[in-house]
Write a protein that binds this DNA or RNA. Structure first.
Lengths: 316, 316
DNA sequence: CACTCAGTTGCTCATATGAGCAAAAGTTGG
DNA sequence: CCAACTTTTGCTCATATGAGCAACTGAGTG
């Protein structure tokens, strides 16, 4: 092949095939093709760099470590977990939930208390956790509203499920998410029971939360806390979504202070100050609020799908 | 992770990710995960074996070396070339043609004379050959019919194209593929010009041919040598297709000796006796005739697409 | 509880490969 | 045609990895 008219690409392809498919050594390939083993090595490196050789990890537990590192660096996070895109995007919620379950299971030191929010995403995480994922963790609800749960068959809330699977204790927040009048909210937050739960939430070792989208499909609308006019008004004020029931704009600022004052739960600053605040998010409709959360310091760990990760890494 | 509830698959995936995506050594991975480097090595081997790590050669020039070896062994071939399936199967003809062109270019010793048949497959091969693919090769037509070419714009036959690109000489066979009467055929084959060309074809170093399917789309029907009744009769007699215009059954036997006697060109036994007979075939409609060619010793080299190769390797 | 057998582990030593460097080869401009 | 610069090559030496083996561990049986 030394004086044949074959171009370089063909040589690279042959070398890659002999090495990866035939299992031949670089020495053997060099002898076969009349090249030095050093040249063969360089061609293999070029084949990998140019994408002619593609090495892919194919497994439900696989991650995208390169994207994870980029996310950590871009947003100064202590941890990022990215689940590869799959051919069945309906599967993404389950796979991100499983990755979140894996991450919780490997938290070190094992937390005494975890504060959790609620929503479909965290419900999936609770479902993916294995029995005995930890030993005796107290799971505290950190924002209101879980009692207004209309889904039939969901007898135990996600906080209860997470706690049960760790042979731990669930501490539920017996309060609506949003009160009609400020006075009522202040009264409830002063009540010893509610105040005690909020205090335990504020002292948690780990915060686990997701975010909501500011649209008509919102759990707040579904559960009667907001109506369509409310949502329109919030969107008009620039809300991209809610964290712990608190509606924020792209910069992470509360868009409606009056509404916020009537909302029950710990403050967003508590997430910013926390040593370990874990944010789980899936889906294109949440890209805007996801960007806000990671860029305004509300989380130390993000767990998400590949499409969301790529969106977060795009220049705006 | 030594006492975590994570299962083995998760460990394998993490190890594979750290090695192939992060470029860490087995030593480094072992230190990170609390495993020996020997254990890490075994997990990587298992990841490759189990298909969790997939290494693929992605390039228009790529081949399927494993299938090639299986074909060589199954059919006692000296060479087999298999082109990977692509997402655009319309592209297969071009890619197989390119692989055939590559193969011709690397023939050693460089042949003095090549005998060729005709058809769309070889036309594509001629198109894929580079200028100067060889130096001064004589290309001889070994079966009749090329002159009855109705395709507009195809000013030079494939034999002429192959010869020109090698700065060589084309020797065309000035004869119809099939004669109406046996006497006419005998007369033409005795003519000094035609007899000389057939003699040169019989003495070629390399034979390059494809096969035709026994159906209404056949080039013989298109060119008026056969009509639909003829095709029906051939099929009734068990014909799976034609090689050099000669219709054969699954065992490689001539199905209509009378028709065969009126057909102009070298015999199929000459292909069987040749040192180097190269068979190029693409497409599912040719699987049956392809199987006949490779299993009845008509070729020493087969060049085909992945689907055909897999069909040829299937047990019947 | 002890024995046997199968599977797994960590090791030594040999082999395979890569990094960095000096020399050689190729290209470009005057 | 020659000089200067860039690119490529082959090498030495260090590192990374695998094969084969002995020892260890776990499971099953009497």
């Amino acid at each position: 092949m030394s004086d044949a008219i074959l171009d370089k690409d063909l040589v690279i392809v042959r070398v890659a095939e002999l090495y990866y498919e035939e299992g031949k050594t670089q020495d053997e390939i060099g002898a076969l093709l009349g090249l030095s083993r050093f040249k063969v090595g360089r061609l293999l490196t070029e084949a990998r760099t140019a994408g002619i050789v593609r090495i892919e990890i194919v497994h439900p537990r696989a991650r995208r470590l390169g994207l994870e590192r980029e996310l950590r660096e871009r947003y100064d996070l202590s941890e990022a977990v990215v689940v590869p895109a799959s051919s069945d995007s309906a599967d993404d919620l389950k796979r991100v939930a499983r990755a979140a379950a894996d991450q919780l299971t490997t938290l070190r030191p094992v937390p005494d208390t975890i504060a959790v929010s609620w929503g479909r995403t965290l419900t999936a995480v609770a479902a993916e956790l294995k029995e005995g994922w930890a030993r005796s963790v107290k799971v505290v609800q950190m924002n209101g509203g879980v009692s207004v749960n209309r889904r039939p068959g969901s007898a135990s809330s996600l906080a209860t499920t997470i706690a049960r699977k760790a042979s731990g204790q669930a501490v539920l927040l017996p309060s609506p998410a949003i009160l009609d009048r400020l006075e009522t909210k202040l009264a409830i937050e002063s009540d010893r029971t509610v105040a005690g739960v909020l205090a335990q939430a504020s002292e948690a070792d780990v915060y686990l939360f997701t975010a909501g989208v500011c649209d008509y499909n919102s759990a707040h609308v579904e559960n009667g806390y907001l109506n369509h006019e409310d949502v329109d008004e919030l969107a008009r004020r620039g809300a991209v979504g809610d964290v712990l029931g608190r509606y924020i704009d792209a910069d992470g600022n509360i868009v409606d202070p009056e509404l916020d004052a009537r909302t029950v739960g710990i403050s967003l600053n508590r997430l910013r100050e926390a040593t370990s605040s874990v944010f789980v998010t899936v889906g294109e409709n949440k890209h805007d609020i996801a960007r806000t959360v990671v860029s305004s310091g509300m989380c130390s760990t993000v767990i998400t799908d590949e499409m969301t990760a790529r969106a977060l890494l795009e220049e705006l």
